[in-house]
């Protein structure tokens, strides 16, 4: 564990707390893509199957359970909560997620470290996480005024994987023989997808104006 990875995990944790805070405080999920949340739950469930058969540390187990439960909780809020579900804009949240999930599964079946069920699913989760934010970014372009908390949520989410990039560089420099091409390339693509959002987010923050992505 190094500071970059710990900071990355804390940023990821914080992003989910900000999202839950937004939904719970405003009793609204306006601007939040249910599709992206469902993709994240799929990412966590397929990545953390090792909860069933291996133990790494209390921290590792706690964080995995938190990510699975919190994303399930967000989905419940958007789908089931009597007030929040009224504010979900399904007409705007129309990204075809199968166009993301199927190529990721095909790629995971062909490019992986080990052709076993758990390893292919883990690889699938790595590829899927790289593109899971797309429905959310498309929704933000469609909903003109992005509220601050939703903007902060996406910013933190992008920041966590950027911190992981620093973690991988640190591990390459300090751990001879450390090679994780699949996560390195996926993580780089994932962070690259956020660049455009980062640009508009930081610009709106500096000009102290409302965040709005050009459609």
């Amino acid at each position: 564990m190094n500071i970059f990875r710990f900071a990355g995990d804390m940023t990821h944790l914080l992003s989910i707390i900000v999202l839950l805070l937004k939904i719970n405080a405003t009793k609204s999920c306006a601007g939040v893509s249910l599709k992206t949340q469902e993709l994240y739950l799929l990412v966590f469930v397929t990545r953390y199957l090792d909860l069933l058969y291996s133990y790494i540390s209390l921290y590792n187990t706690f964080m995995k359970l938190f990510f699975i439960c919190s994303s399930g909780c967000v989905i419940w809020y958007i789908r089931e909560h009597k007030t929040v579900s009224q504010t979900y804009d399904s007409a705007q949240d129309t990204f075809r997620v199968l166009f993301l999930a199927c190529p990721c599964m095909i790629l995971a079946l062909t490019v992986n470290h080990d052709f076993t069920v758990t390893e292919v699913l883990w690889t699938f989760s790595i590829y899927l996480e790289a593109v899971a934010i797309l429905p959310q970014l498309v929704l933000l372009q469609r909903t003109k005024n992005v509220d601050t908390l939703t903007g902060n949520y996406v910013f933190l989410l992008g920041g966590y994987r950027a911190l992981y990039l620093l973690n991988w560089i640190y591990r390459i420099l300090t751990e001879p023989g450390y090679r994780q091409w699949i996560v390195w390339i996926s993580g780089t693509i994932q962070t690259a997808i956020y660049c455009d959002f980062f640009y508009y987010y930081i610009k709106s923050w500096r000009n102290n104006e409302r965040l709005s992505l050009p459609s």
């Binding site: 990545r47 090792d50 790494i56 590792n60 080990d114 390893e119 883990w122 992981y164 973690n167 996560v183």
Partner: peptide, 10 residues
């Protein structure tokens, strides 16, 4: 994984 190391990152 083939390298033997379990996936220790989240």
């Amino acid at each position: 994984a083939a390298m033997g190391a379990p996936h220790d990152e989240l």
